[in-house]
Computed example of a mutant assay.
Amino acid sequence: MNTPNYTERQRQLRNIVVMALADGSIGGREVALLADRCVELGLGQAELQEALEFGLGDDAALELPADESTREALLADLIRMMAADGFLAETEKRLFALAAAHMNIVGDRLQEIISSVISDQNDREGKDASA
């Protein structure tokens, strides 16, 4: 079977979709975050559609990156997606914890990543409120 050669950006989007669907549903805020992240990654509607189809498929699973900076970027994206709907489902928490553990990002470094994402999110929300 011929496996498609996905780019790092496509894999990142697919991983975010897997997290978005981890709780069994996808809401408007999650869709908006996916669309925004797709644009930030320089991907189009076709790639987003492919990522959604992957996430809804029986073989949906996180594809963990090899290099450390990409791993940390993935964890940051997963945190943003987990928080997008305002509710942290147990399935999302477990998926995140497993991903972090498999990538050997634990303890203080994991806490730094979480704190950074929360700080960035708070800064963004503050700017949105003042606009």
Rank of each mutant, 00 (worst) to 15 (best):
G42Y: 01
G42M: 09
G42A: 06
G42E: 08
G42R: 00
G42P: 04
G42D: 03
L43D: 01
L43R: 03
L43C: 03
L43F: 07
L43K: 10
L43G: 00
G44I: 05
G44P: 03
G44M: 04
G44N: 14
G44S: 11
Q45R: 11
Q45Y: 03
Q45N: 02
A46I: 14
A46M: 13
A46T: 14
A46C: 11
A46R: 15
E47W: 13
L48Y: 12
L48R: 14
L48H: 11
L48P: 10
L48N: 04
L48A: 02
L48C: 02
L48E: 01
Q49G: 05
Q49Y: 03
E50L: 14
E50T: 08
E50H: 12
A51R: 07
A51T: 10
A51M: 08
A51I: 09
A51H: 08
L52K: 12
L52C: 08
E53Q: 12
E53R: 14
E53V: 11
E53H: 13
E53I: 08
F54T: 05
F54H: 14
F54Q: 01
F54S: 07
F54K: 08
F54E: 01
F54I: 11
G55M: 09
G55E: 00
G55P: 10
L56A: 13
L56M: 13
G57A: 15
G57R: 12
G57T: 06
G57W: 14
G57H: 11
G57K: 11
D58Q: 13
D58K: 13
D58P: 05
D58V: 05
D58F: 14
D59P: 03
D59K: 15
D59G: 02
D59F: 11
D59I: 13
A60E: 00
A60C: 00
A61T: 10
A61W: 09
L62A: 03
L62P: 02
E63W: 11
E63A: 09
E63V: 12
E63N: 05
E63M: 13
E63R: 11
E63F: 09
L64N: 01
L64I: 10
L64F: 04
L64C: 04
P65K: 01
P65Q: 03
A66E: 15
A66M: 15
A66Y: 14
A66R: 12
A66S: 11
E68D: 05
E68Q: 10
S69P: 01
S69H: 12
T70Y: 04
T70Q: 07
T70N: 09
T70E: 10
T70H: 12
T70P: 00
T70R: 13
R71N: 08
R71P: 08
E72D: 03
E72N: 01
E72Y: 00
E72K: 13
A73M: 06
A73K: 10
A73P: 00
A73G: 08
A73H: 07
A73N: 05
L74W: 03
L74P: 05
L75R: 09
L75D: 02
L75C: 01
L75K: 06
A76K: 06
A76L: 00
D77R: 06
D77V: 09
D77Q: 10
L78P: 02
L78H: 01
I79V: 14
I79R: 00
I79T: 02
R80V: 06
R80A: 12
R80Q: 12
R80K: 10
R80H: 02
M81T: 04
M81P: 04
M81V: 02
M81K: 01
M82A: 11
M82F: 04
